[in-house]
Nucleic acid binder design. Sequence first.
DNA 1: ACGACCATGTAAAACGTTACATGATTTA
DNA 2: TAAATCATGTAACGTTTTACATGGTCGT
Lengths: 186, 186
Amino acid sequence: MRRASKTKYTILGFLTIRPMSGYDMKKSMEKTTGNFWSESPGQLYPELKKLLKGKYIQCEDQTTEGGRPRKVYSITSKGKKMLKDWLKQPAEMPVARDEVFLKLFFGKNMPIAESIRHVERRLVKAKEVNNYFLWLQKHIDEEHNEVEDIPFWKIMLNHGFYIIKAEMEWCKDAIKNLKQLSKKVV
Amino acid sequence: MRRASKTKYTILGFLTIRPMSGYDMKKSMEKTTGNFWSESPGQLYPELKKLLKGKYIQCEDQTTEGGRPRKVYSITSKGKKMLKDWLKQPAEMPVARDEVFLKLFFGKNMPIAESIRHVERRLVKAKEVNNYFLWLQKHIDEEHNEVEDIPFWKIMLNHGFYIIKAEMEWCKDAIKNLKQLSKKVV
DNA sequence: ACGACCATGTAAAACGTTACATGATTTA
DNA sequence: TAAATCATGTAACGTTTTACATGGTCGT
């Protein structure tokens, strides 16, 4: 069977944090789940309409008198049921695709200095992500209204720290190994 | 700009290991880069034809007299050039999408025991992957004809070890935290 | 004889992103 | 007043998977 889109569950899940608009959702997502999950507007808005039609969510139109549009969605009990059913099913493993590793795997076809550059760039990004996590750790409480989410978010943030630390350590290790290798070749 | 397909570079890269058929490529890919890169037949075969047409690869038909088809491709100098040009360009960061984390992020909407189950399943998979890496470490030399690839492959394998170790540690940590949490709730 | 694997290849359908269109409001 | 951000939404397009079709070969 075709790998089904998870956009609807993402929407449903975010609406358990608090009622919000499509735009809010996108912003909140970038901030909180951006490192392991994201959705694009081209998926989000059409799915919002479908869920509304199916009564999984409801909509309160908060468009201002001036005309600035704003639709605030909230989850219905039907929506909660669908979310819960999905939550308890085992998750599919992700399809891994990380370009830089593919390039490094083909490393013999470029000067070692180029490989090193790839890893260095990766290390820079990893450090940025790590800093972001550090920031998020301080500001995690600000995102929402209910405290029940926090323990789970912290567990996920913790995952981020574990992985990014391993990534940074590997980068340093790999740079060392590659430098060693370039000496041998000479 | 639209995220371009990397299938052609994947093919080109694999053909620097040794001449092989589309089928070989798929097998080799699953074995070696499966944890960070893969391609499906629906991408592989059409791209093989395009690359052949563009003279980036060449084909030797080794179809047996009985009629069993086998097309062995090898890379041309034009192909090598294209590969090298791509290799030195900075890599794009992957779009992260890992379903189990999305579920865990929404953890407040299910019994904690379910969250624990998700993490336990993840730990089982992580251990399997770790065992696979261990196996691969012993058999890495068998895959190819030239030794020049090995140092780079070992660096990538090392990345696998770093990440999977972090993943396993986090899983154990998360299970502990979740159990702690379920006590508090009671 | 049967299943597993070798081997190529395509069609259909869904997935997902990007770019764009539109217009209001806030901030520097 | 210009730029950034708020905010919704769609069209176009390429990507990618899955399922299927086809048939050969090898081991048991």
